[in-house]
């Protein structure tokens, strides 16, 4: 992106309400996760049976759970788990998926392309929950399994989007010019294709990040993700279920945390797409 485009993108970013709101929400939860390393209102490993299942109060802003643990502190520490799982899973998806997509596009129409794409379809047939079930059946439940399960599911997502973005680029004249200059497919892929699909990847990355948080919550909820005593949002919701009729706050706040984080990331993704995608940009003016 050029300087001129960059400045216009910056001013557009400031005007883009989706991006601002989404960015703010994301920052809040990212901040909560980071702060939790330094300070939490209460120790989340400490039970306080005397104060169990209390509603929000001055001492416990969001109330306490069935062991008397502070829910705000649990949510802050739980944010770490969610974010860590989602980030690593997106990382796995990108690290494996993007090179595969670039490679498939560079050899479009070949047997290799076919194998990569069919392999992708096959992985798509295993929803991340199913992969998690298989891994758990093998090694027992843990946060690592959740990461691997979500990460594997992310691979074909990134491979596909990279390939389709790369394919449109491969038909452009500037790629032909690079080929005439004698550059090989690998070099062209990294020098010319990758920087031009980066926008797509950033947008997809935010979306997969939010999906990762949802998936982690779901897996923890059914006990296939992070194990106690590691606090996680999904686990908190599972624990709250028994008490839902008389202690709805135990279910409300962790759920809201998930909802707002995912909402923030999605809004940010939409905002970024508006800024990156010139086709949509034209449509708006």
């Amino acid at each position: 992106m050029s300087l001129a485009e960059e400045t216009s993108a910056t001013s557009m970013a400031l005007k883009n309400r989706n991006l601002l709101l989404g960015g703010a929400l994301t920052l809040v939860f990212l901040g909560a996760a980071l702060i939790s390393f330094l300070w939490v209102p209460y120790d989340v490993t400490q039970m306080d049976i005397a104060n169990k299942i209390k509603g929000p109060s001055a001492a416990h802003w969001l109330g306490t759970d069935h062991y008397g643990r502070d829910i705000l502190a649990m949510i802050m520490v739980g944010a770490r788990t969610s974010i860590a799982v989602a980030v690593v899973a997106v990382g796995i998806g990108m690290l494996v998926g993007v090179p595969l997509g670039l490679w498939a596009a560079a050899r479009r129409g070949s047997l290799l392309d076919e194998v990569i794409m069919r392999g992708n379809d096959l992985v798509f047939a295993f929803p991340s929950l199913v992969i998690a079930v298989m891994i758990t059946a093998a090694f027992g439940p843990s946060a690592t399994n959740a990461i691997i399960a979500i990460g594997i599911f992310n691979i074909p997502v990134f491979a596909r989007i990279t390939r389709s973005g790369a394919l449109t680029l491969w038909s452009r004249d500037f790629i032909l010019a690079a080929r005439v200059a004698g550059k090989g497919a690998a070099r062209i892929s990294f020098e010319h294709i990758l920087p031009n699909v980066l926008n797509l990847l950033i947008v997809q990355g935010t979306i997969q990040f939010s999906l990762g948080i949802l998936a982690e919550a779901g897996l923890s909820y059914v006990g296939l993700g992070a194990q106690p005593p590691t606090p996680s949002w999904g686990r908190m919701l599972a624990d709250s279920q028994t008490f839902i009729s008389f202690a709805p706050h135990m279910a409300l706040f962790p759920g809201l945390a998930i909802l707002l984080t995912v909402l923030g990331l999605n809004l940010m993704g939409d905002g970024l797409r508006d800024i990156f995608d010139p086709k949509l940009r034209r449509g708006r003016t």
């Binding site: 050029s2 032909l176 010019a177 690079a178 200059a181 004698g182 550059k183 010319h192 920087p195 031009n196």
Partner: peptide, 24 residues
């Protein structure tokens, strides 16, 4: 080539675009 708009990588400056044939 024909298309003056598609013939260049939009992310590079002219100096870098013009020297691409030096690769050989």
């Amino acid at each position: 080539f024909q298309d003056p708009y598609g013939s260049f990588n939009p992310r590079h400056k002219v100096a870098r675009l013009v020297v691409e044939p030096f690769h050989l």
